Amino acid sequence: MSCSTEPTNTSPTPSRTETTYFPPISGTTWETKSIASLDWKQNAVQPLLDYLELKHSKGFVILVNGRIVMENYFNGHTATTNWYWASAGKTLTATLTGIAEQERYLNINNKVSDYIGTGWTSLPISKENLITNKHLLTMTSGIEDIDNGDAVDPASLTYKADAGTRWAYHNVYVKLQDVIAKASNQTWNTYFNTRLRDKIGMDGTWFQSGNNSVYASTTRSMARFGLLMANKGKWDNTVVLSETYFNATTNTSQNINLGYGYLWWLNGKSSYHLPQSQIQFSGSIIPSAPNDMFMALGKNDQKIYIIPSKNMVVIRMGDAADNVNLALSDFDDVLWQKISALYQ
């Protein structure tokens, strides 16, 4: 059974010049906007909710111009329940890397060993020193991605190819958290909380799951981060992330996987690679979704979808839609058929 929260506030009928709304940093107030005010199709709402519930969803939010249009919870989940982001949280690390660069703690083009020392891999030193922070951001470290699980200890980080010559999805990106901690002389948690979480009113915490550093928060906190990125790194009038870095992180970052930025997935490109595969697929990652959409995608279908042309953010938290653990599945395409039915 699905349920939605009561509107906190009601906004007027939107106009083309409507400004983006940002909820207060503290408290539960968040302006809402009705389906009718957008001229969306009310009869498309229930099929979407039915599908979300069928596919083991827990939290779902749509924002337009920062205001909540839909907010629904399923299967005992509530607005105050934390849930893990899985690999959707990679985008938090990408964002903090950009913040650390604008504060001049680091340069993404510098080698990783400049910050955490040599010997962080088992590569020959000449090969290890090819790996820059940017290679970690773009999944082009060249480190072997087969049969090592998610481990990032030096013994598990072995050579496959020179950095920059091969795209492969790998947990080694998490070393950026060590880079930031060393460069800023702060703990990762402290830097994250002061530079991002507290500035936009998120809740949530990091926890260790095996070799992974995983973030967990409420659905609304995930939506807050989505809103920040939909506004190109600004929270209201405060620059959290520079627009220059925002543009780099949400556009094609290398020439191997066109559908990948700095730990963000990019829709609407001419080709893409998927995790655990070296196959190049033609066309858009999610054909039924807008071409300008960029995405944070996590295991068991944790999703942040951001559509700049519609000033829209969509969040989905929950269990795996189809008992598939990969970040991307047919669920995304069908879900977007049902979301787009709201406004097409």
Rank of each mutant, 00 (worst) to 15 (best):
P7D: 00
S11L: 10
Y21A: 13
I25N: 12
I25M: 12
E31R: 14
I35A: 09
A36H: 10
S37R: 02
L38M: 13
L52T: 14
E53I: 13
G59E: 08
N65P: 04
R67H: 11
I68M: 02
N75A: 15
H77S: 13
T97D: 05
E101M: 07
R104T: 08
I108E: 03
N110R: 12
T121K: 01
S122C: 00
S122I: 02
S122G: 01
S122A: 05
E128Q: 00
N133R: 05
K134G: 02
L136S: 02
T138M: 13
M139E: 04
S141K: 05
E144G: 15
D145S: 14
D150W: 01
L157F: 06
T165L: 05
K175D: 01
L176F: 06
K182F: 12
T194V: 14
T205I: 14
W206E: 08
G210A: 06
G210N: 07
N211E: 13
V214P: 02
S217W: 04
S217F: 02
S217Y: 03
S221A: 10
M229P: 02
K232D: 10
D236F: 14
D236L: 11
S242K: 07
N247V: 04
T249C: 15
S253L: 07
Q254L: 03
L258T: 04
L258I: 00
G259F: 01
L266K: 05
H273E: 07
I279D: 10
S284Y: 06
N291H: 13
M295W: 09
Q302D: 06
I307P: 02
S309H: 12
V313L: 06
D319R: 15
D330I: 08
F331T: 10
F331C: 06
D333L: 05
V334N: 06
L342D: 00
Q344W: 13
Q344F: 12
